[in-house]
């Protein structure tokens, strides 16, 4: 890979992660959300894998992608449970006012989706980019 690409990749990696988090929380009331944010984050890791190699990207992720997927799904599942207690209906969300922020269990759900998307996309992409000989 070219020097410029690998030098810039680090910077863009951090930038894209920041943007992905911004998209995740913006999705609360405006266009954006866990899925889009997750895709941007996944593409950040993908760029790292392209610029360096897959093992660098894997190390940057710290977790195995499948673990991330499982954790995200678990979080999304638990975000639906409070509604079962109050309304007897799964995914009926609770809302709180924290300062000026309007937060709820839907936020947890979105974070769960974010993790599932990052994990799921990277699970495939790492497999595709990895050298079959290894």
């Amino acid at each position: 890979m070219s020097l410029i690409f690998s030098a810039m990749a680090r910077i863009f990696f951090a930038l894209m992660l920041a943007v992905s988090l911004f998209l995740l929380f913006r999705g609360h009331n405006e266009p954006g959300g866990g899925f889009v944010g997750g895709l941007v984050a996944a593409s950040a890791f993908t760029m790292l894998a392209l610029a360096e190699n897959v093992s660098v990207a894997r190390r940057a992720l710290h977790l195995h992608p499948v673990v991330l997927m499982g954790a995200g799904l678990l979080l999304a599942f638990f975000s639906g449970l409070p509604g079962v207690l109050s309304d007897r209906s799964f995914l009926a969300h609770w809302w709180f006012e924290v300062g000026s922020l309007h937060l709820g269990t839907a936020t947890l759900f979105d974070i769960g989706v974010y993790c599932v998307v990052v994990g799921g996309v990277l699970c495939l992409i790492f497999r595709l980019y990895e050298d079959p000989a290894q």
Binding site: H64, V66, V67, M69, G70, A71, G72, L73, L74, F77
Partner: peptide, 8 residues
């Protein structure tokens, strides 16, 4: 399913 994945 989520738990099994998280316990990879």
């Amino acid at each position: 399913a989520a738990l099994c994945a998280a316990l990879w």
